[in-house]
């Protein structure tokens, strides 16, 4: 019965490199310098926390919705392609995840900057009067995050769409359903579990995003993770930073369990779609 012991290395790895460091960090929110709730009190009393929490949620929701619409359309399109083409496109989509986040965000800085191709083109077309930076605003942040996160929407959504029996669509046709009705009554409901998985992934990843809002955003896009970064790197107040992290993790956990009670855990790993 060797199988029984198979989970030990994996569990050991998780405990050693994930649970222990994260746990030690989170504990600081109530143990730094001694047992205390002062970090949380300060957190909930400060205006900065609520504003950045609002920013974080607003940006995450916008990014998730845009990813859902675009990702679903892309997934639908890929599902209608022949197998080899579909697989090639999926590989391309997954490959974008391998490119460093930093590289991709700096690429947007170049594109959206005052001397960037978009600004200069718009001037050449006469739409802008003079070269303007398109950076450091919410649109730039959302654009950058959608670009980075959309694979996490496309993959589970594609899995759901691709699993829909083509005979169902023909049945719709024969039963007199017009294309819009086929979409709203059959295609969308049957894709919903995949879309929900994609939304959960994109939204929770958005909540913890740091690089994109930090690089492409401005004052109005200060997120919780950016506050944390300041506390850790500039204020050296680890306890206070840990309180931020605890709130983020709590929010993620609530979403995660809400998803699980609605769709079940299997869906997240792509089974039974």
């Amino acid at each position: 019965m060797v199988r029984r012991w198979f989970w030990i290395p994996g569990l050991g790895f998780l405990v050693l490199f994930f649970l222990l460091p994260v746990g030690a960090f989170l504990l600081q929110s109530v143990l730094d310098p001694g047992p205390t709730f002062m970090h949380f009190e300060r957190l909930f009393e400060g205006r900065a926390f609520w504003v950045s929490l609002g920013n974080t949620f607003r940006i995450s929701i916008t990014v998730t919705l845009i990813c859902a619409v675009i990702g679903f359309l892309i997934a639908l399109r890929i599902a209608t392609l022949q197998r080899p083409y579909a697989n090639a496109l999926l590989v391309l989509i997954v490959m974008t995840v391998w490119i460093s986040l930093l590289v991709r965000n700096y690429a947007w800085m170049v594109l959206l900057g005052r001397e960037g191709i978009i600004s200069t083109s718009l001037v050449a077309l006469g739409i802008f009067e003079r070269k303007t930076s398109l950076l450091f605003n919410e649109a730039a942040v959302v654009l950058g995050m959608v670009h980075v996160l959309i694979p996490y929407m496309i993959i589970p959504t594609y899995a759901a769409v691709q699993a829909i029996d083509p005979a169902l669509l023909r049945a719709c046709d024969s039963l007199g359903a017009r294309p819009a009705q086929v979409f709203s009554r059959v295609l969308l409901p049957l894709s919903l579990p995949g879309l929900a998985t994609g939304c959960l992934l994109v939204f929770t990843l958005s909540l913890g995003f740091y690089v994109t809002p930090a690089i492409l955003g401005g004052r109005g896009q200060t997120t919780l993770t950016m506050l944390m970064e300041i506390e850790v790197n500039e204020q050296l107040n680890w306890g206070f930073a840990a309180a931020h992290a605890a709130v983020l993790i709590a929010i993620t956990a609530v979403l995660f369990f809400a998803y699980r009670s609605k769709f079940g855990m299997d869906r997240l790993w792509g089974q039974e779609l």
Binding site: A171, D173, S174, L175
Partner: peptide, 20 residues
């Protein structure tokens, strides 16, 4: 005419019932 405008009933081999 597209299938949806022909007013034809069809029974499929694998039934093609809507699972949802």
């Amino acid at each position: 005419l597209p299938s949806s405008e022909r007013n034809i009933g069809m029974v499929f081999q694998n039934y093609a019932l809507f699972p949802h």
